[in-house]
Simulated scan of single mutants.
Amino acid sequence: MALVAGVLLLSMAAVLLLRWVNPPTSAVMATHWIASRVTSGNAPSVFHRWVDWELIPLPVALAAIAAEDQRFPTHRGFDLVEIRRALATFQDGGRLRGASTITQQTAKNLFLWSGRDYLRKGLEVWFTILLETFWSKQRILEVYLNIAQFSPDTYGVGAASGRYLGRHVSDLGFQDAALLAAVLPNPILYRLDAPSARVKRRAAWIGRQMRQLGGLEYLKRL
């Protein structure tokens, strides 16, 4: 019990600290670096550049919400509507799709390892609750945009915009934002350096969703 209590207190302290301190890396980035080092023996490349919230254009934030979690401003970490829909689809014989929110993805990417085991899922729930309790929605989205994976070795909108769009993230507009968000479901398969027809269609869909949500006014709900 003492060990469990210690782990819970340590996790709470870490989440509280990162409310104000920008994380220099994430569990996913660290795992990528270690795995590449072990496999190749060479120093692997991990492209990451932190960008403060004030320098992230609002269209970039809106595109991420439109693409990944349209109820982000109103839920408390778990989108029960999407969870029920995913379960209903599975019960009808369909594939069990994910229903992770931006908060869940932030918790997983920042603190945990990849996988579907019960321990990791349980910790994801715990960290999601902590993030929603101690951080603002704006802070959750800021960290998410800075640690999300945009290609096999590129993390965060700062590095992705510079490497693949050729300019600083602060100069991006609506179309650029939609293109960045289009690769988020699978940054290994979907490419920013050579966007496929599927990526372009998804970017167009995200653009329509951004407008249907009400445009930048939607972000006032954060």
Results as ranks from 00 to 15, higher is better:
Met29Trp: 07
Val15Cys: 07
Gly158Thr: 09
Asn146Ile: 12
Trp33Asn: 09
Leu180Asn: 04
Gly122Asp: 11
His32Phe: 02
Ser100Met: 12
Phe134Asn: 09
Met1Lys: 07
His168Gly: 14
Phe72Val: 10
Tyr218His: 08
Val199Pro: 02
Leu10Ser: 00
Met210Val: 10
Ala107Tyr: 06
Val4Trp: 13
Thr106Gly: 12
Asp52Pro: 02
Gln104Thr: 00
Val46Cys: 15
Ser45Met: 14
Trp113Asn: 08
Arg95Tyr: 10
Ser45Ile: 13
Glu142Cys: 01
Phe111Cys: 01
Arg19Ala: 15
Val199Ile: 14
Pro57Ser: 05
Ile102Thr: 11
Val169Arg: 03
Gly41Met: 00
Leu180Gly: 00
Ala67Trp: 04
Leu58Arg: 13
Tyr190Thr: 07
Ser151Met: 06
Ala35Asn: 15
Tyr144Glu: 03
Ala5Ser: 10
His168Lys: 11
Gly162Phe: 01
Gly98Met: 09
Trp50Arg: 04
Ser40His: 09
Pro195Thr: 01
Ile83Arg: 08
Thr89Cys: 03
Arg120Ile: 10
Ser161Gly: 12
Arg139Gln: 10
Leu219Asn: 01
Tyr144Thr: 01
Leu9Ala: 09
Leu18His: 04
Ser151Arg: 01
Ala88Gly: 07
Val28Phe: 13
Phe150Ile: 10
Gln209Thr: 15
Ala181Tyr: 13
Glu68Leu: 11
Ala194Arg: 11
Leu119Met: 14
Val7Ser: 00
Ala178Thr: 05
Gln175Leu: 14
Ala5Cys: 03
Arg167Pro: 01
Leu184His: 04
Gly214Met: 05
Gly207Ser: 11
Gln138Glu: 14
Gln212His: 13
Gly173Gln: 09
Gln70Thr: 15
Asp153Pro: 00
Ala107Gly: 14
Val81Met: 11
Ser36Asn: 10
Gly156Leu: 06
Gly115Leu: 03
Leu119Cys: 05
Val7Thr: 12
Phe72Lys: 13
Thr89Gly: 04
Tyr118Thr: 05
Trp126Glu: 14
Arg97Gly: 01
Thr106Phe: 02
Val38Asp: 11
Gly215Val: 14
Arg76Ala: 03
Pro187Asn: 10
Met29Asp: 14
Tyr144Arg: 07
Arg191Val: 07
Leu3Arg: 12
Thr128Lys: 04
Ile147Cys: 14
Leu179Lys: 04
Val7Trp: 11
Lys137Ser: 05
Met12Asn: 12
Ala35Phe: 10
Leu130Ile: 07
Phe174Met: 14
Val199Ala: 09
Gln209Glu: 14
Ala14Trp: 02
Ile206Gly: 08
Asp92Ser: 04
Phe150Asp: 00
Asn186Ile: 11
Tyr164His: 04
Gly115Cys: 07
Asp79Ile: 11
Phe134Ala: 07
Asp153Ser: 04
Ala182Ile: 08
Thr74Leu: 12
Pro195Trp: 02
Ala63Glu: 06
Ala182Gln: 09
Gly98Ile: 10
Leu131Ile: 07
Lys137Gln: 01
Pro24Asp: 05
Arg139Ala: 05
Leu112Ala: 03
Met210Ser: 12
